[in-house]
Simulated scan of single mutants.
Amino acid sequence: MSRSAIKLHTPAGRKALDKMINEAERKAQETALTKGGKPVAPAKKAAGNGEIRIIGGQWRRTRLPVAQKPGLRPTPDRVRETLFNWLGQDLTNWKCVDAFAGTGALGFEAASRGASSVVMNEQDAALVQQLQRLREQLDAKAVKVQRGDGLSCLKSISGQDLVLLDPPFDLVDMFEAAVKAAAQAINDGGFIYLEGPEAWGEEQLQPLGLELHRYLKAGAVHAHLLKKLP
């Protein structure tokens, strides 16, 4: 098929063009290797949009578009489903904080299941705008979106039933301070969901007045549900 014959507005045309581009990249790599040079790297695709799916509650099965940004790691569907099974599905009248909201997957899930108050805190300005758009799209009146540092957010609140902690995995030094601040922010008997790159044990939790209520490892994700002791 000649280039001039390709109709880009049709699926067949786009498929044919992709095939031509891939074939050209393959030949370029072979030529570079034959000459003793380095292989030519394929062109990088521009970062597009992904999506998250709300698992349960009033917005069950609703799919929300989310930006794809370096380091952004939405909590997997399986882990979110397990978390809210642990919590009992119905969060009616719960007060919640999603301190490192990111895509908002955890916070919107809590709001979908009846939480009366969900503070979604995020530092990245573009993600804050995205969260605002999703809030409006869902008409999620219980959700408040704010921009700020996650640790400062935790230190400024109290009387919460659930704190959702999913800091960037590369901020290793922040985890201990975040868990400590979250422990002060929740009521006795309240919960902290902690998602991190390593498992937390009783020796780390007991000095903070917390116990490990549930635990799940899914790939590189260690998911903990912590409960505050009375």
Rank of each mutant, 00 (worst) to 15 (best):
K45P: 15
Q89S: 09
K144I: 08
V118I: 02
E109P: 01
R61K: 10
G71N: 13
Q130K: 14
S112E: 04
P42G: 15
E122C: 08
P76S: 14
K95Q: 07
N85L: 04
L138D: 11
A43P: 14
A32C: 12
A5P: 08
K141H: 07
V143W: 02
Q129A: 15
G13F: 03
A41P: 14
Q129H: 15
R78V: 15
V143T: 04
N85G: 10
K141D: 11
P39M: 09
K144S: 09
A126P: 14
N49G: 15
Q129C: 12
F84L: 04
I21V: 12
K35G: 10
A47Q: 10
F100S: 06
R26G: 06
P70Q: 15
V97R: 02
G102R: 09
A5M: 06
R113A: 05
E30P: 09
Q130I: 10
L134C: 07
V79Y: 00
V66S: 04
Q29P: 14
I52Q: 00
V79T: 14
T31S: 10
L91E: 06
S112D: 06
G37W: 03
T75Q: 08
A99D: 07
V145A: 06
L83K: 04
K27H: 06
G37L: 04
G107F: 01
D90L: 02
A32L: 09
T92Q: 09
G107E: 04
M20F: 02
K45D: 15
D18K: 12
P76V: 11
L134G: 11
G50Y: 00
R73E: 14
R53G: 01
I21N: 11
W94N: 02
R113F: 01
